[in-house]
Amino acid sequence: MAQLFFPKEIRDLEHRIAATPETVKKLIAAGYQVSVEAGAGEGAFISDDNYTQAGATVGDDLKSLYEAADIVVKIQAPQHHPGLDVHEAELLREGSTLVASIVPQNALDAVRIMMDRKVSAFSMNLIPRITIAQKMDTLSSQASLAGYKAVLLAANQLGKYFPLLMTAAGTITPSKVVILGAGVAGLQAIATAHRLGAKVEAFDIRAVVKEQVESLGAKFIDIPVEDAEDAGGYAKEQSEAAQERQRKELTKRLANADVAITTALIPGRPAPLLITEEMVAQMPAGSVIVDMAVEQGGNCALSEPGKTVVKEGVTIIGELNIPSLVPIHASQLYARNVLNFFTHLTHEKEFQIDTEEAITDGSLLTHEGECRHELTRSLLEEN
């Protein structure tokens, strides 16, 4: 019977946890033993007693908990643990398994350690975009929450109403919101801004999302682009000429916008630059930008990771971990994604690593001392 361990996240401002009492019960029913680090659920308002009542063992001897674990499940990639003065990846027992939302290019040190320790590391971020894997898609579940919260962050900073307001003192026109990127986060941002009464426009280089954008009440900004979608359904990097055409049109739209929310990411690469310093300078004083791609370099040239700054009279929000601002539901959704992942890979009450199986093959980052992810291998060689 495999031992699962859920440690407390140590990254600053990370309040989520990868297990809830609901999923703990189901994992135990599936044949696993479950342990949780004391205090791990506090950020999501889950007490240690909640976990023990669900059947988990709660402990505070972190090194012993790691040593006893066959599989460690967390949200953030392993990093240096300040309390123990050791890297979390070094706490993993040699030959054990890790399941986490690892962005490989941002965690090369952890990848190297896990290769040395022959850890089988699964990245929830690398789960392939196929129908059977939708219920395990942590990127989508967390992006939806982030898109919702990003609009509220913008509304909180904006010195205007979002909706149309007609009063005896006169009429207040609705705020204008521009959403750049219409993936899961962008679509949820569109829906939220529309519900709040804003006038919403949205742009995505994938013209196929136009119908979805318009169905949510927004106007699609139609700019001719190159072939813009890869086989996995993600946006592809565009040529400089194409990007220049986009910037020219978006400059016009942003010059009249009260809020801009950027969500554009390209897997394995820095976030594309969508809003230049010159474009920011042309936005109205008091307007707001929420750069949801700031952790991958940012879609706005002036955003600063983890900071809210005012530049050229525009407030630019660079919140690093927006889903963690909604920790209760973010933990519930992530934990259910994890449960579905384990359900798929558990056979006869055993977690099986079958490298020929599609989801395993796509999400298995390191295994038996090797890095299986092509882009990460090339980055390891370069660095």
Rank of each mutant, 00 (worst) to 15 (best):
Q238E: 12
N156Y: 15
E201I: 03
G83L: 15
Q188R: 10
C371V: 03
A330H: 00
K199S: 13
E244T: 15
I359G: 06
L84D: 04
Y51W: 10
T20F: 08
F341V: 03
G159H: 12
G159E: 07
R112E: 14
Q212S: 13
V294Y: 00
V34E: 01
D49G: 11
T131H: 14
L365I: 03
G59Y: 02
C300N: 06
H329S: 14
I289V: 15
E14K: 05
V24A: 04
V99H: 01
F342L: 02
N299E: 08
R117N: 14
K307A: 14
I359L: 08
D227A: 14
Y148L: 08
I46C: 05
L27F: 05
A168R: 13
E14Y: 07
N50Q: 12
D291Y: 00
A18C: 11
A335N: 03
A89R: 05
K149I: 07
P104H: 01
L320R: 12
N340M: 02
E278I: 09
C300P: 07
T171K: 13
G298D: 06
A29W: 09
E249W: 10
A133T: 05
A242L: 09
A40L: 05
P327G: 03
N106A: 15
E9K: 01
L216T: 04
T97E: 07
K160C: 07
G183Q: 07
D291Q: 07
I75K: 02
A255Y: 09
K160N: 11
D222W: 10
L165N: 11
E382P: 02
L152T: 04
I261S: 00
K8R: 15
L379K: 13
Q157L: 12
S101L: 04
L380V: 06
P163K: 14
L145S: 00
V338K: 02
E37L: 01
A228G: 15
K74R: 14
Q79R: 15
V151P: 02
H87D: 14
F122W: 07
C300L: 10
T192N: 03
I261A: 03
L339F: 15
H81Q: 09
G59L: 01
L302I: 06
K118G: 02
E312P: 04
I172S: 06
G95N: 13
L62Y: 02
P323D: 14
G95K: 10
A56R: 01
G31D: 02
I223C: 06
A169V: 09
A185I: 10
F203T: 06
P78V: 11
C371H: 00
Q134W: 03
N125T: 11
T262F: 08
R269W: 11
T23H: 01
S64V: 08
L254E: 01
A30I: 11
K160G: 08
H329Y: 12
A100F: 06
V103Y: 04
P163S: 13
L27K: 02
